[in-house]
Write a protein that binds this DNA or RNA. Structure first.
Lengths: 243, 243
DNA sequence: CGAACCTTTGAGCGTCCTCAACCTGCGTGG
DNA sequence: CCACGCAGGTTGAGGACGCTCAAAGGTTCG
């Protein structure tokens, strides 16, 4: 469904009901579908950005680098997620975004988005809501890193990704395809890749979840959620605030 | 200045230029000034919220609780900051907000904010921008906790708060009044209060900064910024994206 | 077939935690 | 007016969690 030509308006529709005239207005957007290769740096940290993206296929991650060369991944983006929304609002991006797989995305120009706020006020609310959800996820990551053990962090992240993918029809309760490496998990969770490896082994030995060959498989989801004290409320995608 | 009756419109003006008619529209808002006592829980986690606040005096913090009773402070709010903006967008708050001092704040009703998006489109952009800045700060906290040592974290937090307060005319380059306890710092930085204490002692002994009796004093700000690899770019409050 | 990337395992160590105790300042009530 | 309680700060001792360094096996892709 997300691959359809109007993925953009469809995405916005999940956040706010758009009228016929809203849609006409949005149709004036300069949008183009773009592809990126795995490893491509789609948005550069510290650089002015002229466009955001709506991911239609593939995975990306947003991250910040430290002077010592360490990396902190702030969030992963999966199909249906916006990408670089914050960058265009702040004008220069405070983070980088890298394609983790081959990617298909709609490019949306900053100028169009800002203009649309005056022409399609409901769209502002929709974008704002998307932005609020992003922030909620980052806040949950903060809790994850700040107050949970390595095992809980890994479990929580695997569950979050599963829940988010399920919302867009990828994977199911038993698992999902996952292109991340243990290094990615480490950079997202504030751990070393080596320790992530040990934790994954332990989770596997406990019969909770396996992370292997690009596939996450939940062996015992209930117990895993228990270990991670996972509550998917912060991912809520329903009940938009505007009619 | 923030204590003036129109602190709300003044705040919005820092994000977008508002016309005369914009201001007339905003004047229709149901706003009222409210006071809260230290320790009061202004917004409850998991509860539907009908209003947000603009802090005009005092400090607050937004946080999330874990089932084990641990707390993760997501951000501190100082005068001039919005409070609960994300809560009203998501309808039910994913975090709690507590008054750390006696507080004065303008209450803004959710319905007014959402209505205003259609009547004053520029306001949507302004709110969105404020929200993006919030998210940028949370992301920086994530980096702080995820990839920096305890000493760097403490140094970074003290510098961030100083920079933010300076933007609203509180304190100066040499220091600022700070009502936080070491427990607050610990909960914000993912550390134990005891370790925060040791780190503060070390920073003091190194002649970098002192944290004592509600006062933060920078003894050697340059070296402190160096230790924390602090770069205030993410706090940028200038250059709003809309004329 | 080699090279790059990813995963796995071991050993040793350091940061930061927990538990425990004591101190200080301050507000409250007997 | 002093006694007490309590919040916040300080210090010590011991231990655990997660890191670094090191090395080797597995996979994938040009």
């Amino acid at each position: 469904m997300l691959k359809s030509q109007n993925a953009f308006t469809q995405k916005l529709s999940t956040y706010a009901v758009l009228s016929e005239s809203d849609l006409t207005n949005l149709a004036m957007f300069n949008r183009r579908s773009r592809r990126f290769q795995r490893g491509h740096e789609m948005i550069h940290e510290g650089q002015r950005t002229g466009s955001a993206f709506l991911l239609t296929d593939g995975w990306a991650c947003s991250y910040k680098m430290l002077p010592e060369g360490d990396r902190q991944i702030v969030d992963f983006q999966v199909p249906g997620d916006f990408l670089g929304l914050r960058s265009i609002l702040l004008q220069t991006s405070d983070h980088g975004v890298e394609a983790l797989t081959q990617i298909e995305a709609f490019e949306v120009l900053t100028t169009d988005i800002l203009d649309a706020f005056t022409r399609v006020p409901r769209m502002a609310a929709a974008v704002l809501w998307a932005s609020a959800r992003d922030e909620a996820m980052v806040a949950e990551h903060l809790v994850n890193i700040g107050r949970r053990t390595a095992e809980q962090r890994v479990a929580h992240m695997l569950l979050e990704l599963g829940a988010r993918l399920e919302l867009v029809g990828i994977g199911d309760t038993s698992g999902y395809p996952c292109p991340l490496t243990q290094y990615h998990l480490a950079d997202a969770l504030g751990l070393s890749a080596i320790h992530v490896n040990r934790v994954l082994r332990h989770l596997r030995e406990e019969g909770l979840v396996t992370f292997h060959k690009g596939q996450v498989i939940f062996e015992d989801r209930d117990r895993l959620e228990d270990v991670a004290s996972f509550d998917s409320a912060y991912l809520a995608q329903d009940r938009p605030p505007l009619r």
